[in-house]
């Protein structure tokens, strides 16, 4: 039983790492797509819309399977040998694509909530475009985006469990292996649920604190 406690700890680390890496990359992707969607170019807006609509309409499990099997097939075709793609990398890529699509929608709404005058004022002060985004738009849009972003993060943490289907030894996979070898599925899956619940509770509490911190009094 003790060895499984250690394995659960390893699984926890992998789950957290997977969520953090794909969350961070997905946020960047989402921000990029949101900016692209808001640009005046017709074609980029259309591409951004197609990306968010398609990705939000597909099951996460399907995206993970596509990236894993599709990636393996692509690498095998390129190198001529059968090479299985790393489950962690496939998981990060798949979750990043899904997370980015939802993020883009949240960020787009948040960017639109920042008054146009802020951008114009920043431009008239002679700030460069990257400075305008980093110092003027981002801090103000984050305040609007944070509640929805927190919910999205929590669903990302839960979606990491799907990567166990392609063989990544996260919490879910450890529970699956343990349940099989110890013939005690109830115990192991309850343990896994407790770990996931702890992760989501922790996320929820941190986002509450963060929201309170960046709140403007009286708003």
């Amino acid at each position: 039983m003790l060895s499984f406690a250690l394995q659960f700890l390893n699984g926890l680390q992998i789950t957290v790492a997977l969520a953090l890496v794909s969350g961070m990359l997905g946020s960047l992707l989402g921000l990029f797509v949101a900016i692209v969607k808001l640009s005046k170019l017709r074609i980029s807006g259309f591409l951004g819309q197609a990306y968010t609509t398609i990705m939000r309409g597909l099951p996460e499990l399907l995206v993970i399977l596509v990236v894993y099997f599709g990636g393996t097939a692509a690498i095998t075709a390129l190198t001529g040998r059968y090479i299985e793609i790393n489950a962690f990398a496939a998981g990060v890529a798949a979750l990043m694509i899904v997370f980015g699509a939802y993020c883009a929608e949240i960020f787009r709404g948040a960017i639109m909530s920042v008054p146009q005058g802020q951008m114009e004022a920043a431009r008239s002060l002679g700030l460069k475009p990257w400075q305008i985004w980093l110092f003027v738009i981002l801090p103000q849009m984050m305040r609007v985006a944070l509640p929805a972003y927190g919910n999205l993060w929590i669903s990302l943490v839960k979606d990491t469990s799907l990567v166990s289907v392609i063989g990544l030894t996260d919490i879910m996979r450890v529970a699956f292996i343990g349940a099989g070898s110890m013939r005690a599925p109830l115990t192991f899956y309850l343990m896994a649920s407790a770990l996931y619940l702890a992760l989501t509770s922790l996320s929820l509490a941190s986002f509450r604190v963060l929201e309170r911190r960046i709140q403007i009094p009286g708003h």
């Binding site: 166990s164 289907v165 996931y196």
Partner: peptide
Amino acid sequence: GTPLLVQLFL
């Protein structure tokens, strides 16, 4: 607060 997959396996 828990993944659907865990609930399903449970």
